[in-house]
């Protein structure tokens, strides 16, 4: 069982791990681009991630969600990983970190 502090710490580790995944077209990390909307970790270490892609129907969407799933699962201590792809809200360029 993880306490809230450990959950927060693990969330940061998952976020850091996901930041190594690049958007192939833009060449910037998907975290930096604002494509990861939410990372939630429960007391059992199960991770729930809500993400998007720069455009709806992006042919790379399947690969990106697979990459996020396997990358998050590679963080020590992480249990099950659930990745949800959403387009609500739609991503827009202002979501990128400058």
């Amino acid at each position: 069982m993880l306490d809230p502090f450990e959950q927060q710490e693990m969330t940061d580790r998952v976020r850091r791990q996901l930041s190594t995944i690049i958007d192939p077209e833009i060449g910037r990390g998907i975290v930096e681009m604002g494509l990861i909307y939410l990372i939630e970790i429960n007391a059992e270490g199960d991770v729930s991630i809500i993400m998007t892609t720069t455009t709806k129907g992006c042919p790379a969407a399947g690969f990106l969600t697979d990459a996020v799933r396997s990358s998050a699962a590679s963080v020590p201590g992480v249990g099950n990983v659930e990745v949800t792809l959403t387009y609500e809200p739609m991503w827009h360029p202002e979501m990128m970190q400058s």
Binding site: T20, P24, E25, G27, L64, D66, V68, S71
Partner: peptide, 17 residues
């Protein structure tokens, strides 16, 4: 890029398009 590097994205360093 999709054909070659999509399947290993997140598991290995890959080039940009």
């Amino acid at each position: 890029w999709l054909e070659c590097y999509g399947p290993v994205l997140g598991r290995a360093p890959v080039p940009r398009v």
